[in-house]
Design a protein around this nucleic acid. Structure first.
Lengths: 114, 114
DNA sequence: TTGACAGGTAACCCTTTGGTTACCTATACT
DNA sequence: AGTATAGGTAACCAAAGGGTTACCTGTCAA
């Protein structure tokens, strides 16, 4: 799961996933197009390689074309095994935070740092 | 939001959030304890600094002690503004992926790469 | 069969990151 | 007042990251 978090840490890679979300099965050439002015094809290839290694993208070759398919499973795994937990007690945590922030400056003995 | 993804990309930092989830309001010393054998207090401090910068953790000083509180909002934001979308069409994406994988090796003309 | 096209490999470069050590500051305790 | 305690700063380091350029390979179409 660490690979997935690492993969998602990069803006470009998240954009690529968004692009594949909009239309799965795109080739490297197609995925590269939007970045043609900002980075090399090889750079995009590296990003796709990382997404592939994290299993976020599955590859299907057809002839000389490589098609990229979004695999939603790892994202779901993160949602399910990690985020869900924090989501569950969100209000509790917020309440605790609020209380802590409130009770933190009486009588000048304690002080908060924004 | 990029800061949040970056912050979550590190295993240690995710562990720290887990620790704060279990018990919010811990001091640096307390949070450092589990890592005492594997890394320096300063290293843990840096991680906390990154979590703080990403607004995942809020600080309250009381005397010479620094209390760390989990802030669940950024995690919720990621869940809501990013993951939710993928979650929504999960089955569609999986179906498309499955179809692509199936239709990819007839007549030896096409081949799949695991 | 040859050339254009889709993609891959490798070496290299600079910056960021995660960690270290050494030393400093501020609060609390006695 | 003096010392232990909680935390902070700074300089430094090796490795990982994101990118580049140059060149190679495999497939399609004329």
């Amino acid at each position: 799961m660490n690979d997935v978090f690492k993969a998602l840490a990069d803006e470009t890679r998240r954009e690529i996933l968004d692009t594949l979300y909009a239309k799965s099965g795109q080739t490297l050439g197609e995925l590269y197009a939007p970045y043609a002015k900002s980075m090399s094809r090889q750079a995009v290839m590296k990003h796709l390689g990382i997404l592939e290694a994290a299993n976020l993208v599955a590859i299907v070759w057809s002839g000389r074309e490589k098609r990229h398919y979004l695999n939603p499973i790892p994202i779901h795994a993160i949602q399910d095994r990690w985020i869900k937990k924090f989501e569950r007690q969100r209000m509790d945590a917020l309440a605790a935070l609020k209380t802590a922030l409130e009770g933190s400056e009486p009588k000048g003995k304690k002080h908060v740092q924004s």
